[in-house]
Amino acid sequence: MTSPAGLTAPLGRRRLRWHAAGCLAVLLGALYLAHRYRPAVRHAAERLAAADQGWLLAGAAAALTTWAASALAQQGAVVRRLPGARLLAAQFAASAANHLLPAGLGAGAVNVRFLMRCGLPAGRAAGALAVKTTASAAVRLALIGLLAPACPGLLRLPHLSPVAVAALLGAVAAAVLLITSLWSRCRRALAAVLADIRTLHARPSRAAALWGGSLAFAALHALVLVAVTRAVGVPLAPLQVALLYLAASSAAALLPTPGGLGSLDAALALALIAAGAPGAAAASAVLGYRLLTVWLPLLPGLLVLVVLVRRKSL
């Protein structure tokens, strides 16, 4: 009879193969897009190569600290004390896994698995992730609300065709019907999440970690884009760039692509150009932001993911 350990090893190797295959698919897709739009990518890369290296280093430093902010927010969503080094490594691995599955499923799966390995039941682990996600969305909306009056006229609602409006209304109606059909389950899940939120906010240190980490995560990502726009000479004020990033990333989250691949790039580029940035400079800024936050950390993040799986931390 096969032992559980004997079954676990093949399953672990199978997961690693799937992660490697997903990484390969993402890289091949990026290479195809780079080849398809080779002149534009080459021009953006040349401009980025001649950019201010000091600002690029500042952007890289901000990108590195985003994982610490994510770890702080995740600790704030859990009453139990989590192992700091493994928590930070899990956030780094989750950022890589996030680019293999759509709509944040990769990062969510890594974080839930990590929390379960730390002793949380599956329901509590999923609830902690929901609390963190909710806090992140609330912080982004609050920042948009605070920055929008400082940059009047910068954010404008796009003109939607009747077909787009009809499609949007149809999607909303489908979502309402789905929530209604699953209301009994959603109600129980929502009650559990609200109970977790009340428990966390009864401990000021956890509440400060949750909201402070969520605020720092959003601000640091905005700072990465601000640094890159300074490096390539985009003629926009830092507050304007930060507001455009928050709005574009929030809009891109509605499209379930792996890590916002394609949706966030297009939203950022269009937002920068609509605000007055030259097309070439906007493309260079988006390329630089993606290099610092996605492509350069992707392979190290996947290696950390493999190590965590092998050590049974995930």
Rank of each mutant, 00 (worst) to 15 (best):
T199P: 00
A164M: 13
C151G: 06
G301N: 01
L296Y: 09
R206L: 11
S263A: 15
A51Y: 07
G104M: 12
L100I: 12
L303H: 02
L272Y: 00
M1A: 14
I144F: 06
L105Y: 08
A125T: 04
G259A: 12
A209C: 13
S95H: 10
L115T: 02
V306D: 00
V131W: 02
W67G: 02
L101D: 01
A175T: 12
L87T: 09
A166M: 13
L64T: 11
A282R: 05
R311K: 12
L129E: 04
L246E: 02
A164D: 00
A77V: 06
A251Q: 03
A96L: 11
T66M: 09
P238M: 09
R80K: 15
L299V: 14
A109V: 07
L215A: 15
V286D: 01
V224A: 06
L308C: 04
P204V: 12
P158E: 12
P152M: 13
A85G: 05
G22P: 02
P83M: 12
L100N: 02
D52S: 14
T66G: 02
L303Y: 06
F217Y: 15
R198G: 10
H43K: 14
H201C: 14
A148N: 03
L190Q: 09
V232P: 02
L64R: 09
G170C: 12
L28M: 15
A20C: 06
G29L: 12
L244T: 08
Q240W: 04
A281W: 03
L296C: 05
P158Y: 13
A93I: 08
A45I: 02
A207K: 11
C23Q: 11
A9H: 04
N111L: 05
V241Q: 04
L190V: 09
L200T: 05
L261C: 09
A248P: 01
L270Q: 08
L87G: 03
A227G: 07
A283P: 03
V234S: 05
A89G: 03
V234A: 15
R124N: 00
V241L: 11
L302S: 01
A219Y: 10
L101G: 03
H159N: 01
L146K: 03
L296A: 15
L82H: 14
I273E: 07
G108P: 00
A109Y: 04
I273F: 08
Q53K: 15
A237F: 09
L105W: 10
T257P: 00
A45P: 01
V176W: 09
L24W: 02
A50F: 09
S136P: 00
R86N: 06
L168C: 11
A21K: 02
A166Q: 10
L243Y: 04
A63T: 05
L220G: 03
